[in-house]
Amino acid sequence: MEITGALVATLSKKAKENRQIIVDVFKGGGHFGGSFSCTDILTVLYNSVMNVDPANPKWEGRDYFILSKGHANGALATVLATRGFYSCEQLETFNCLDSPFGEHPTQKMPGVEIPTGSLGHGLSIGVGIALSLKLDKKDSKVYVLMGDGELHEGQVWEAMQAAPKWGLDNLIAIVDRNRLSMDGPTESVSMPLEPLVDKWSSFNWAVKTVDGHDVRALLEVSSAIPFRTGSPSVIIANTVKGKGVSFMEGDYNWHYGLLNEETRRQALSEIAEAR
């Protein structure tokens, strides 16, 4: 795939539209911070990286995606809608009784492989899918998007040990490194993660870091997958929690929040004006 200026522009525009939709998906409150930090990543993955068929979400040849940081489902639900898995109107039921769309992915949501949201589970599930693909000699890839705070969970490190054992170069972990967990900065308040690149490397993963809001950089890094034959790949995507809305950016209090009419207008206007 050629990474043209036009493609970058198209994806950037799409990411902006997705953020605008997310504002209204979260009209009753939502995980703004972690959804906006991974909106660009999800937009690029679903529109230019992964092989998916919106008309047939269970298509045998698809790439697999696991939203291990399930609380960003507002972003995923929106990205799947604008990719054509279902209509944007259906998102109006978000968080409503019996809706397929809730704060965390459910199996009722077209395009979702497995419910997630309890942190630390996704990479293990990805290991299982990747193993079965190898067993069946299939070429599909498995993408697992994790929060950085999620890496505090011990199970993640179990999965990190396991993937290289079986040479799962069809498995790609993406860490949304916004440096904030619910209680504050990971490095000073909840639990330090650095040196994060060294940790993944020493677990025998092939690591690349990227600006998680730079569409071109995300496309370039994705085109290099697998980073090393025979090894699982991890992309540490440096991001800003709440990206796109000034009063949310870098403020851990916007991990979850509710907009009023005035702040909603401000958010939509800032997203629209962003370059």
Binding site: Y64, E113, I114, H121, G122, L123, S124, I125, G126, V127, G128, I129, A130, L131, S132, L133, L135, D136, G154, Q155, E158, A159, Q161, A162, W166
Partner: peptide, 27 residues
């Protein structure tokens, strides 16, 4: 070839079993 030893890490093993089952395996 159909046997997988996950080491002393049961939680990861159960998650991986879920992943296997998603693709029609019977773990």
């Amino acid at each position: 070839e159909r046997t997988f030893n996950f080491g002393i890490a049961e939680a990861n093993m159960v998650g991986a079993a879920a992943g296997m089952a998603l693709r029609g395996k019977v773990p």
